[in-house]
Amino acid sequence: MKSCLVVDDSKIIRKVARRILEELNFDIQEAVDGQDALDNCKSAMPDVVLLDWNMPVMNGLDFLKALRKTEGGAEPVVVFCTTENDMSHISAAISAGADEYIMKPFDREIIESKFVQVGLL
């Protein structure tokens, strides 16, 4: 079973994402912001990170940059999942090493389609 770290400051979003991803057979961990996510990754690298952008303490982009510099941090597939839906944000995320990008609102189909694209399903 592959592990997925769901990073979002909204409890509701984490719950929705967890439900979808558990149905797709992922083992879910949750983090409430970028710093929490980084701590999580340092203790156990997940296979995938589903990542919000705007969060207190450390935002998604800063987390991603820090993750990619961490030992073993090049490995996880990182999929942004955010309301930031303009080209400049998308490009910045991809340049920083994100593998895919989901613009909210999302549903099961979009998550599934994106996970297929990055070879997780």
Binding site: M87, I90, S91, E100, M103
Partner: peptide, 18 residues
């Protein structure tokens, strides 16, 4: 937004869409 997220890799969205 919904249509471009079904099946289209993000790299191709960046490259071929405005």
């Amino acid at each position: 937004q919904f249509e471009v997220q079904r099946g289209l890799p993000i790299q191709l969205l960046i490259k071929y869409f405005n």
